[in-house]
Design a binder for these strands. Structure first.
Lengths: 250, 250
DNA sequence: GTATCATTGCGTCATATCGACACAATAGTA
DNA sequence: TACTATTGTGTCGATATGACGCAATGATAC
């Protein structure tokens, strides 16, 4: 991202950017990956631009590879943000003044249409890495995200809404949980995304009815109470469910 | 769309275009609005570009106003098409050679990222109007759409898929049917979109349970059989349902 | 070692919803 | 006037859903 001068205009498609809402799950909390901008110290979503020969999907993968070290991430575009005034009070431009000589301010002064993606990643495997414009990249609990740069708060909210909708007709979890997990852990994930409690027994019945889980012999020890069984996703059926869709809402 | 030379570069954002899948309903058929290109005689979706001060939504409305004469159309973006090779064998470029002097071929030779919209309109109110690049704009039944220009067939299919999904959690019909309609007409619309028959009685029960219809006193006469009641949408509740979402699938 | 207690596995029950179908009423047509 | 295709309304069994009971378990406290 900090290549030689003139590189932006040459390398990237003008007017176009992308922003990623990266969800992770840890300690019973839904977290989002955020960057702290150097100058303004505002928090922002990880984002980037599209190279001349890239699709948006490839560009988003590249950006996330840079920010998390992870490849093969669950990624989905969910909306184009094209309000002509979305960057009116753009503090990022101020933040970039020092780079005028380096990268050329003009690039950042143009109008950007941004494609919003959301991503689901395994919290424990990601290695947050900041970019040239930020001094920190870290997970933040959803509730503590606060006000973000530009319209990024709006992008984040839309992503969450889309994720909640997706829950109604697609399985979720493979990308957010470790390989083996317990039913309570999976339930906690659903509750966290939906923001409401679910009945333990009904949850298990419904989840098992999807037929996307393999129940393992082993149980999870170490907890302070009765040891729950471990499960893993049945990838074959999981993929089929992703394709064909589930039924019933939450 | 056929302004003076150089106008494209000046007026529109480079690299960006939009394509609209406009659905109408007539004679128990789902129809799509298509344009026939002048030179290649290929069929294409109505589309356009984004002016410097427009959002994509405004641009799409403008394009549809030009193609149908209608304002205030139900419009929804559903996907960004950004494959770098989506226009590789672009016949539209050949089709535009004659306009080289007029509009500047360079504009059309650049790579385009296109945002796909789908629209629902009242068939009887639309007045299909072709643009500068086409000699015909008309409705075509979905099954007879055939191969379209570039990746427009793919865009069409994705739009249809999205529409079918929308049916599961949003009411549909206000934008596609005349003000007053019968239950069998509404059912036919659903069957057509879904591509499968539905039980008459179960359909009515479910539809009424949504509480988005007003049953009128009047019945529709002229048919060869028992006169069905007329209905209209309860706009208040219809809008609420659009917002809040419905439940259960089809 | 034993009692305690939060948690888990598995099940029940009443209710709502869904899919399939029955039957009478009706409006034009033969 | 009989006929026929269509509409309005209702029923029935299967299935899904929401609310809850109870015994088993495994670490912790005593």
């Amino acid at each position: 991202m900090s290549q030689n001068p003139q590189s932006y205009q040459d390398q990237y498609l003008s007017h176009l950017s992308l922003d990623c809402v990266v969800f992770g799950f840890h300690g019973s909390q839904l977290k989002v990956l955020l960057l702290r901008m150097k100058k303004t110290r505002e928090w922002a979503l990880p984002g980037g631009f599209v190279k001349n020969d890239e699709s948006f999907e490839v560009a988003a993968s590249r950006v996330l590879k840079e920010r998390t070290g992870l490849g093969d991430i669950f990624l989905k575009q969910f909306k184009v943000f094209s309000d002509p005034h979305r960057a009116d009070k753009n503090p990022a431009v101020r933040d970039l003044e020092e780079k005028k000589a380096d990268a050329g301010l003009e690039w950042f002064e143009q109008r950007f249409i941004s494609v919003g993606f959301y991503a689901l990643v395994d919290f424990s495997l990601a290695e947050p890495t900041h970019d040239f414009f930020s001094d920190l990249c870290t997970w933040k609990p959803l509730e503590e995200a606060g006000d973000l740069m530009l319209d990024h708060s709006q992008i984040l909210n839309q992503a969450l809404e889309t994720l909640r909708l997706q829950l109604n007709y697609q399985p979720i979890g493979y990308n957010l949980l470790p390989e083996r997990f317990t039913m309570p852990e999976l339930q906690k994930l659903y509750e966290t995304i939906l923001g409401k409690p679910l009945d333990r027994r009904n949850f298990q019945r419904k989840m098992l009815s999807y037929d996307i889980l393999n129940k393992l012999e082993e149980r999870k020890t170490g907890g302070a109470h009765k040891a729950p069984y471990l499960y893993e996703f049945n990838l074959d059926n999981y993929r089929k469910a992703l394709q064909g869709g589930l039924y019933g809402g939450w």
